[in-house]
């Protein structure tokens, strides 16, 4: 698939411009700019410590970047500046939902309850600050039935409907990952940020995940994906952004990224400036030239 952000029919949903984030002396993200096209899957890859999760934390309101703009082009509200929103408002007002690298479910609540909590705002409005809910008015009961319906829909999509009434913490690892994605989807996100969704999945589960993400894309969800599993990245992403030491070193379709020398260097390690002994230089000379 050869879709780049130049495709005119699909405007960018998310625009990140010159974002920098530093922790004391450590520069986690340095002057990063990229766009995520609407209805496309954008993968963010890079070696450990490249700043991928930091970027997610900036986008979803957990960190506030020191410099830069992050604009989400909301179809209803118009452009929303993510870095100006208070942390917890990002999900509600910009429609950005996320999952976590180390799964963060509500382990002692049931699977269904996890999905209902994600629809807190709709239900809170229907319960009129709890009062209509306390009185058991039909308006609230309808809203709750609707929320359960939506939860059931996503449970069916991720194949967890049979476990709906189980305690979320007792699910196997792969199921917990899928539940976390379903929970994020219950917030009706415009932009879904997945932090290593394939980590710890077996090949079959990983294939299921690819299928799910593809169908979400077809339904109009824009996906931002951090992933180490290259089979997932290469197979489903439309665009790949490569970070290293907080800097963007490459961007483009997966096929181009695969052969990009800068990316290969970042992953396999840079050739040191230190001169190697001549006998070794001679032996690897051919290879070194090929990398050029």
């Amino acid at each position: 698939m050869q879709i780049t952000d130049q495709t005119p029919s699909t405007p960018p949903l998310l625009e990140v411009e010159h974002v920098s984030m530093r922790f004391g002396g450590l520069v986690a993200i340095n002057d990063l700019s990229f766009t995520a096209t609407a209805r496309r899957i954008t993968a963010i890859i890079g070696p450990n410590g490249a700043g991928k999760t930091t970027l997610f934390n900036c986008l979803t309101g957990f960190y506030r970047p020191g410099v830069g703009r992050m604009t989400l082009h909301h179809p209803v509200r118009g452009p929303v500046r993510l870095e100006r929103l208070e942390g917890f408002r990002v999900a509600r007002e910009a429609g950005v939902a996320r999952t976590f690298q180390n799964i963060r479910l509500f382990p002692r609540m049931s699977v269904l309850e996890n999905l209902i909590v994600a629809q807190h705002h709709v239900l809170m409005r229907a319960s009129v600050c709890t009062i209509a809910g306390l009185l058991g008015l039909s308006r609230y009961r309808r809203a709750e039935a609707h929320a359960v319906g939506k939860a059931r829909h996503w449970l069916e999509r991720v194949g967890l409907v049979a476990h709906a009434d189980r305690e979320a913490g007792t699910l196997p690892y792969g199921d917990q990952r899928r539940l976390e994605i379903a929970r994020a989807l219950c917030t009706d996100p415009l932009l879904l940020c997945l932090d290593e969704p394939a980590a710890g999945l077996d090949p079959r589960e990983s294939q299921d995940l690819n299928r799910l993400l593809r169908s979400l894309r077809a339904e109009g969800v824009t996906i931002l994906l951090i992933e180490h599993d290259m089979s997932v990245v290469m197979e489903i992403s439309d665009k790949v952004v490569v970070l290293d030491h907080g800097q963007k070193i490459a961007v483009g379709p997966p096929a181009a990224i695969r052969t990009n020398p800068a990316v290969i260097r970042a992953y396999l390690g840079e050739e040191e400036d230190e001169p190697l002994p001549p006998e070794i230089t001679g032996a690897i000379g051919e290879e070194g030239k090929a990398h050029g």
Binding site: A97, R104, F106, R183
Partner: peptide, 13 residues
């Protein structure tokens, strides 16, 4: 259960 997850779902702690 998890305050961070609450924030990510748009709940105001």
């Amino acid at each position: 259960e998890d305050e961070t997850a609450c924030r990510a779902l748009g709940l105001d702690p």
